[in-house]
Simulated scan of single mutants.
Amino acid sequence: MSITTALLPLVGPDFGAVGGAGDLRTIVGALLTYGLVIAVLMVIACAATWAIGSAQGSWPTASKAKTGLYVALGGAVLIGGSLAWANWLLSIGASL
Rank of each mutant, 00 (worst) to 15 (best):
L41Q: 08
G75D: 05
I79G: 00
L8H: 07
A6F: 12
V11I: 15
S63L: 12
L78N: 00
S63H: 03
T5Y: 10
T5D: 13
G93S: 07
A94E: 12
V37N: 08
G75F: 09
S54Y: 03
G22S: 03
G75A: 14
M1G: 15
G80A: 09
A62M: 06
L10D: 08
Y70S: 10
K66W: 01
L10A: 07
T5L: 09
V18A: 15
I44P: 01
V37F: 08
A30V: 06
L10V: 14
T26M: 02
G20Q: 01
A94L: 07
I27M: 13
T5N: 13
G22C: 02
A47H: 05
T26K: 06
S63I: 11
I44C: 09
G35A: 10
W88T: 04
F15M: 10
R25Q: 08
A55R: 04
G80I: 12
W50A: 15
P9A: 13
I27W: 06
L31W: 10
A47R: 09
Q56L: 09
T4P: 15
G93F: 12
A45I: 11
I92K: 06
A17R: 01
D14L: 15
I3C: 11
W50Y: 13
D23W: 01
W50G: 04
T33P: 00
T4K: 11
P9E: 15
L32D: 04
V37R: 09
Y34L: 15
V77Y: 11
I44D: 02
V37Q: 10
G53P: 02
Y34I: 14
G29Y: 02
L36C: 05
A62D: 02
G75P: 00
S54H: 03
P60V: 09
A72W: 02
G57P: 08
A39C: 05
W88I: 02
L89N: 14
L32T: 04
L96A: 05
S82L: 12
L8N: 12
G16D: 14
A17W: 00
V28Y: 03
C46D: 07
G19W: 01
V40M: 06
A45P: 00
L69S: 01
L89A: 04
V11G: 01
P9C: 12
T5K: 14
Y70R: 13
A6K: 15
G75R: 08
V43E: 11
L32A: 14
F15R: 07
I27Q: 13
A94D: 05
K66M: 11
C46G: 00
L78I: 05
T26N: 04
Q56F: 06
K64C: 04
A72F: 02
A84K: 05
G57W: 10
I44F: 13
I27C: 06
L8R: 13
T4I: 14
W50E: 13
W59T: 15
V43A: 10
S2N: 13
T5A: 14
A76W: 06
G93K: 01
D14K: 15
L89T: 06
L90F: 11
I38R: 10
A17C: 00
L32M: 14
L73E: 03
S63Y: 09
L69F: 11
A30Q: 14
L7C: 09
S58C: 00
S91I: 08
W50K: 12
A21F: 08
